[in-house]
């Protein structure tokens, strides 16, 4: 498992999103799906942002996705890749692309989730090229 970089930090959690962060420690990426309208959303909420139903449940994502967009920030202690990854389940999430040559990252590149331990009982869901 990789370690947190200088630009990373452990997430602050709260009661609503605790299941998401607890699952990361077990290597699971959870999403919220609405049982009323069927839509999957991100970041997770109790009430569906599409139909406002409170009948939402946690589902486990496959961890597969493609890069929607990215940017390598050069003006940082150590340059890093921020990205939006569109998951197989539909939603697009903000993340980092890691364990690759930062200059090789491209839009539409296939990636898979890779968890990075925060040392605080959680892990950050990052992505690496497949």
């Amino acid at each position: 498992m990789s370690h947190l970089a200088a630009h990373n930090s452990a997430p602050q959690s709260n009661i609503e999103i605790q299941p998401f962060w607890d699952a990361t420690a077990k290597g699971q990426l959870l999403l919220k799906q609405c049982k009323a309208c069927g839509e999957v959303h991100y970041y997770p909420r109790t009430i569906c942002p599409f139909c406002f139903s409170d009948d939402t449940v946690w589902i486990e994502a496959s961890g597969q996705g493609v890069i929607y967009s990215y940017s390598v920030i050069r003006r940082a202690e150590v340059p890093y890749v921020i990205a939006y990854v569109t998951l197989q389940e539909g939603p697009t999430m903000m993340t980092n692309i890691i364990d690759c040559d930062i200059d090789s990252v491209r839009i539409d590149m296939a990636v898979k989730v890779s968890f990075v331990d925060t040392g605080e009982g959680t892990a950050l869901p990052m992505f690496t090229p497949v």
Binding site: A10, P11, Q12, N14, I73, I82, M94, T118
Partner: peptide, 12 residues
């Protein structure tokens, strides 16, 4: 919690 940990900045 879903942005700050990843080094989200205005410019990136």
């Amino acid at each position: 919690s879903f942005e700050f940990p990843f080094g989200s900045t205005v410019t990136n």
